[in-house]
């Protein structure tokens, strides 16, 4: 009898193992299917835009202003607008974000107050972008009287991506071992000298990655700049920052009204005419290409960074 029992146990165990393996294969298939679905969505989106939009991607499309006639309309004002807004955003968000990150990692004492800043930054990262638009509308547009200008849009998007830059700065600073700082202090360096000559240079690639990701998010943000009242139809460019007469530099472009790529896409998408739909997909293709290039750059930077860690 014991012999029979052991074979029964054995077949039971075999069955268990088989079912375990089957379940595992099933789950791996589900996981791969989920991954495939994500990739397929990306491909469908890209191919759909390519089919609808690629015939419109001519040189004129980039050099024409928006027009009532779909086949004559272009994205000149939009891409120039996006570019100038991004300049303001980067000029504000990068120094502010990096400085805040340095303060929080290298200077801030551990107390209630810094805890509050920390929770606050985390919450800001989760505030819907449209709320930033309302802030800008109430604050910059109506209280400060800045209007729906390049400067307003740039500042709004800078506040929006500030948490991204701060978090990236903090994380890359945190990755620097304490021994580097101690070595600098031992040689008599002050705190700022340590930061300036060691901490900041070593964390630069990480910060750069965060800045690029932040800017790629800002470039596609639509809601806040719709709220502040970006113009949808514009047939001139903001004034040139460089002039032939003294004082040679002009800041008039900061107060100029603007349009931007996402606004242009939104405007064309909400028209019933199919010809404008083609314009929308062509412009969307350009915008996606911009963000993919920026994100790709960030991913590549991070990959290189991980390989080149020396400590």
């Amino acid at each position: 009898m014991p012999k029979q029992r052991s074979t029964r146990d054995l077949s039971l165990i075999r069955r268990l193992i088989r079912s375990g393996k089957r379940n595992e294969t099933l789950f791996i298939a589900t996981g791969l299917a989920a991954l495939a679905l994500a990739v397929l969505t990306f491909l469908a989106l890209f191919i759909d835009m390519l089919i609808d939009g690629s015939p419109r991607l001519t040189a004129e499309f980039f050099s024409n202003y928006a027009s009532r006639k779909a086949e004559k309309a272009g994205i000149l004002a939009a891409w120039v607008g996006t570019f100038t807004v991004m300049l303001v955003t980067a000029a504000v968000a990068v120094p502010l974000g990096v400085m805040s990150g340095i303060y929080l990692e290298e200077y801030a004492p551990k107390n209630r107050f810094t805890d509050l800043i920390e929770i606050n930054i985390n919450n800001l990262a989760g505030v819907p972008s449209i709320v930033y638009g309302l802030l800008a509308l109430g604050m910059f547009v109506h209280t400060f009287g800045m209007g729906a200008s390049v400067a307003t849009a740039g500042l709004t998007l800078a506040l929006l991506i500030l948490p991204v830059v701060i978090v990236a700065t903090r994380e890359s600073i945190r990755a620097i071992p304490g021994s580097i700082r101690e070595a600098a202090y031992a040689l008599g360096a002050t705190r700022w000298q340590t930061v300036q000559h060691h901490v900041l240079p070593y964390s630069m690639p990480g910060i750069l990655t965060g800045v690029i990701i932040g800017l790629s998010r800002a470039i596609g943000e639509t809601a806040p700049i719709v709220i502040i009242g970006a113009v949808t139809f514009i047939a001139f460019l903001p004034g040139s920052p460089v002039q032939s007469a003294p004082p040679f530099i002009s800041f008039d472009w900061l107060s100029a009204p603007f349009t931007a790529m996402p606004i242009q896409i939104f405007n064309w998408t909400s028209r019933p005419d199919a010809a404008f739909q083609a314009n929308a997909s062509a412009a969307a293709l350009v915008l996606v290409a911009m963000t993919v290039v920026m994100n790709g750059l960030a991913i590549w930077l991070r990959y290189r960074l991980r390989r080149n860690i020396k400590w």
């Binding site: 989106l45 996606v288 920026m294 994100n295």
Partner: peptide, 18 residues
């Protein structure tokens, strides 16, 4: 990550027309 980086307006276009 690239999927996460696509602007939402483009996703809106995708939802409406695809």
């Amino acid at each position: 990550e690239l999927l996460a980086g696509i602007p939402t307006i483009v996703f809106g276009y995708f939802a409406l027309f695809f």
